[in-house]
Computed example of a mutant assay.
Amino acid sequence: MISFLKDVSREMRKVSWPKGNELTKYTIIVIMTVIFVTIYFTIVDLGITQILELF
């Protein structure tokens, strides 16, 4: 277990972490994507509901 944790620690030091402005940009992109997908599926769901109510 100790060996595993040492290996994890060693690998985590190799990770290239994003800078503050990159992190902000990526966060905004993720939030906008989630909003877009939510709106899209809401419209699709409302459309399917309207079609089903016609029958």
Rank of each mutant, 00 (worst) to 15 (best):
P18Y: 07
M1E: 08
F36W: 01
L54D: 04
I43H: 04
I48S: 05
L5H: 07
F41A: 05
M32D: 06
V15Q: 11
L52Q: 03
V15P: 03
V37W: 09
T49W: 03
F4P: 00
R10Q: 14
I2F: 12
T49N: 03
S3T: 13
I2K: 13
M1D: 11
T42A: 01
L23N: 09
I31N: 06
E22Q: 12
V44D: 01
K19C: 10
G47F: 01
R13W: 06
L46M: 12
T49Q: 05
K25P: 00
T27P: 01
P18C: 02
G20E: 14
T38D: 00
E22M: 04
V37R: 11
F41M: 04
D7C: 14
L5Y: 08
V34P: 00
K25H: 10
I35V: 05
K19W: 10
I2M: 15
S16I: 09
V34I: 15
R10A: 13
T27R: 11
F36L: 01
D45Y: 03
I39Y: 02
L46S: 12
I35F: 12
S3H: 11
D7S: 15
L23Q: 08
I51A: 08
T38Y: 00
T24W: 10
I35A: 03
I2A: 13
K25F: 07
T24G: 12
Y40P: 03
T38V: 07
Q50E: 15
K6Y: 15
T24V: 14
M32F: 10
S9I: 01
E22G: 03
V8L: 10
S9D: 13
I29R: 05
Y40V: 13
I51L: 13
E53T: 12
E11I: 09
F36I: 00
I43F: 07
V30G: 02
V8M: 10
V44Y: 03
I29T: 11
T24E: 10
V44W: 03
P18N: 01
I39N: 03
R10G: 10
I48M: 06
I28Y: 08
Y26I: 12
